[in-house]
Amino acid sequence: MKDRIIGLLESYGKLIVISGIVIAALGLAVSYVFPNTVINTTDINVIEGSEFSIPLPPNSFVEYQCNSGTKPLNGIQVWISKQGAEFTDGKVIYEVYDSNGTLLGTGEQLLKDVDDPQYVYLPFTNMSECNGVLTIKFYFTGSENAYPALIANKEVEIKDEYASTSVNGKRIEGNLKSSYIYFYHTYPLVFDLKVMLAIFVSVFFTLESKKKQKVIKHYE
């Protein structure tokens, strides 16, 4: 049995090694072309206690100014409270502006799809543009008599990030409870495939050439 296996390995050695090289090379190419997208949540202000609600009646707006850092912000997670009311077409609309006031991205969240309260992930359109100092403006539209609220707490120093919250243009003490959402591209198999490629290429040079094998067999 052992001799049979060794015989097979010796007969098909070149094929196996070259296959290994090809698979590693192809795998590397495919890994780079189809990266793995990973969502990362960075908690900015999630401390429990001293929460309060910022109501969002019609014709009112809340602005949250923040800095996404070096990576584009792919969304924000905030607490939305329906304050016990039922909604049909009511929604929270949010718009993302850069430091010059240019609109970068928008989004909306139907309140009937949200629990009361719920820490909702709000993705932006045009996420790749939402980078640097940003202002996210929240407002409510709907036919109902009720309106939702956003939840904040009394934290004003948020890690090393700059953040401030304003209601109808007036800055308040405290900030929205929030987490920032980032997307990352990762290539988990790349390193393994590089090592695999290096290994099989090295092993390739241990393959005996067919000519020499024939000569050795002849003299044996």
Partner: peptide, 21 residues
């Protein structure tokens, strides 16, 4: 030597994992 160097380099800079930051 290339394989050894590749692996030693991971001491300084671990291979990119799937865990973002």
């Amino acid at each position: 030597v290339a394989i050894v160097l590749m692996l030693l380099y991971t001491i300084k800079s671990p291979p990119i994992t799937a865990s973002s930051g």
